[in-house]
Amino acid sequence: MLRIRGLTKTYRGGDRALDGVDLDVPRGQLMALIGPSGAGKSTLIRCVNRLVEPSAGTIAVDGAAVTGLGGGALRAARRRMGMIFQEYALVERLTVMENVLSGRLGYVGFWSSWLRRFPQKDVDAAFRLIERAGLGGMHDKRADQLSGGQRQRVGICRALIQDPALLLVDEPTASLDPKTSRQIMRLLVELCAERQLAAIVNIHDVALAQMFVQRIVGLRAGRIVFDGTPAELTTGMLTEIYGAEDWAATSAAGDDEDDATPQARAIAARLAEEAR
């Protein structure tokens, strides 16, 4: 499905964000990408839909190369990849419906999108998705009137109405409270399963990732250092990914849930499991 070979990205100024990444994601697989801040997670998914231009390497979706495309061909390739953002990135002053329908922009001409005359089947699909995401009846609300969780649901609808083969999800829960985070992750998992989508999910919260995904890839300093099932992600592996840290001390502090970071909480949970 998604095939990445030798992907390298060097930013102007010499920062090497990605260093020869090879990665395959088959159809229907939900894959979590973990790693410390600055490891290149965000760069990796932005290289896939070419919001960031890779320096070297190839990317192919369904066997068709994405690297090297330009103009209309690149836009057509982007239609097949839905993207979901950390801060939702909704167009704040447009309604829920307009935000969802903006996912169809790659399919309709300029004037019909300008006049908001989308084909009826797109409007049907949008209503269904809004209903499915639990936002029924909110289609004429403006995006800036919604809560964080509701906005992220709109973001998910916008990505799915593109009829994508692949979902690129960038920290979907980083701006949400723990309960909403789980709801959003559950929604993502269900929708991916319904539509047999491949998905890459960048995520900080390791525990949350382990709860929902089938495969975890660890990225450190632009290289893949772990690739396996959630169960294979041991304390030693976490140290490998996030760097040396006194995990035991973190675990002691981890009792105080409010102060702990999601990372620390995840690691504390792992240790507790292993102790059993």
Binding site: M97, R116, F118, Q120, D124, D140
Partner: peptide
Amino acid sequence: VTGQRWRPP
């Protein structure tokens, strides 16, 4: 839901 018209408010 199908066939429901929509115009921006």
